[in-house]
């Protein structure tokens, strides 16, 4: 479903070009639960931006469902982004003055979709936030609740791919486990492809596949599916 072919990303800085990604090849199938790991500066966030069509590669090709999306203009990328991808960020990235339900409705507004309220309520329900939370703004929600709202916002469009950038970075251990369980549920029950960028091995260990990056190069790509069931058991317990 996702194919990166010889993808490179170069940033021109004052001190000369910085190579964030060099000749990267990556294939991800539908329904995978992938962790991209690496130190800061390893290129993992760049990878995430390119996967999510927030950025475009300097060289190489990006095929999404076989369609080359590496050269689309910003608005075309925005359209695909809104339809195919859900984003979750470390800093939650909720709009300050909007209530939980409005946050979740937002992607639907830009799609001009019908039944926005009902769909948003369903998405919130799915992440475990009842109607009591609908009217609350970000400041009236805990970190875990805010991240749940952000996840609800990303799944409301029924995306094929969920991209999460350090989704548990700002959460405590218990809440992190809950959020990871939620991702697992999305993979198992809804067939969504979930890609997480993290530097925490414990979080990566909860995924089925770990892609390790160093200096813009993938150094390890391991399927750890055999370890997954035990972790799954721990989380849901």
């Amino acid at each position: 479903m996702i194919d990166l072919i010889d993808v490179e990303k170069t940033y021109n800085t004052g001190a000369g070009p910085v190579f964030a990604l060099r000749g990267t090849n990556l294939h991800i199938d539908r329904g995978e639960f992938v962790a991209i790991m690496g130190q800061s500066g390893s290129g993992k966030s760049t990878m995430m931006n390119i996967l999510g069509l927030l950025d475009r590669p300097s060289a190489g090709r990006y095929l999404l469902e076989g369609q080359d999306v590496s050269d689309l203009d910003p608005d075309a990328r925005a359209r695909i982004r809104g339809r195919e991808f859900g984003f979750v960020f470390q800093a939650y990235n909720l709009v300050p003055r909007l209530s939980a339900i409005e946050q979740v409705e937002m992607p639907l507004v830009y799609q001009g979709a019908p039944d926005r309220h009902a769909r948003a309520a369903k998405a919130l329900e799915r992440v475990g936030l009842s109607a009591a939370f609908h009217k609350r703004g970000p400041t009236q929600l805990s970190g875990g609740q805010q991240q749940r709202v952000a996840i609800a916002r990303s799944i409301v469009v029924e995306p094929r791919v969920m991209l999460a950038d350090e989704p548990t970075g700002a959460l405590d251990t218990t809440t992190s486990a809950e959020v990871m369980a939620l991702f697992r549920e999305l993979v198992e029950e809804h067939g969504i492809t979930v890609i997480i960028v993290t530097h925490e091995p414990e979080i990566a260990a909860l995924c089925d596949r770990i892609v390790r990056m160093v200096d813009g190069v993938i150094v390890q790509d391991a399927t750890s599916r055999h370890t997954a069931p035990e972790h799954r058991g721990e989380v849901s317990a």
Partner: peptide
């Protein structure tokens, strides 16, 4: 906020 809106599919 603009970044968030762009990320969730807002066009120019």
């Amino acid at each position: 906020e603009i970044g968030i809106r762009r990320a969730v599919g807002a066009q120019s």
